[in-house]
Write a protein that binds this DNA or RNA. Sequence first.
DNA 1: CTGTTATGTATAAGAATCTTATGTATATTT
DNA 2: AAATATACATAAGATTCTTATACATAACAG
Lengths: 113, 113
Amino acid sequence: MKNSQLYKGSLNTIIMKLLEENGKMYGYEITQKVKAITQGELNITEGALYPALHKLEAEGLLDVEIEKVDNRMRKYYKLTESGQKETVNRLSELEDFIRNMQSLVSPSPKLEF
Amino acid sequence: MKNSQLYKGSLNTIIMKLLEENGKMYGYEITQKVKAITQGELNITEGALYPALHKLEAEGLLDVEIEKVDNRMRKYYKLTESGQKETVNRLSELEDFIRNMQSLVSPSPKLEF
DNA sequence: CTGTTATGTATAAGAATCTTATGTATATTT
DNA sequence: AAATATACATAAGATTCTTATACATAACAG
């Protein structure tokens, strides 16, 4: 991903959320979309992305469909039914995570007397 | 930590933030504090915590001070000067991370016509 | 009084995720 | 003609965490 270790563990959730929103996407498209949404702050590397997609597919959360565009291969991924249910869970976990992290770092204001 | 992979990579930031707020803390105290703040949702395991503390110390971000209380050892950790500076960076990275994740998953509302 | 829970630290094996590097191939831009 | 963009893939190694184990004292429960 980027410089920060914080993104570790969040890639699956990002992929699934984007697929939920966009129906179907291919790998390279995902990297570009993420870059655009985060204004270049988050760059997903292929070495992280493709193994993640393969794993989600192996787990039955994604379906794949190969197309050829301009003589180049594209593997379009979309959520399975099981994947759609799991996406709801992952997003819920992400909300909890963000809430917990904010509780931990939000400046519980030090009262001064 | 807990069930979710999302927390992976965030432990160092949590530790440093708590030390910034509380001056000095010992390991077990950190686990209890995190549990309390997150209402039991996030449980830091010793297998993750102690190696993390040792590494932060080795990197010169933490200082350690041993005390004996009730015949039991406590290792109090506090931020070094370098650690204080680095904490600012880490918290800034965390803010960026949370902002980026919210951009990615916030329901860019689908307009219907 | 004896076993369990709480307090307190530590490490080692293995799992999961990611970085970095490399490889292949075509299309487009310079 | 060379560099960049598009498009997928994998392998070695780094990092971070889980799970299990280990040691030791204090407090509580049966």
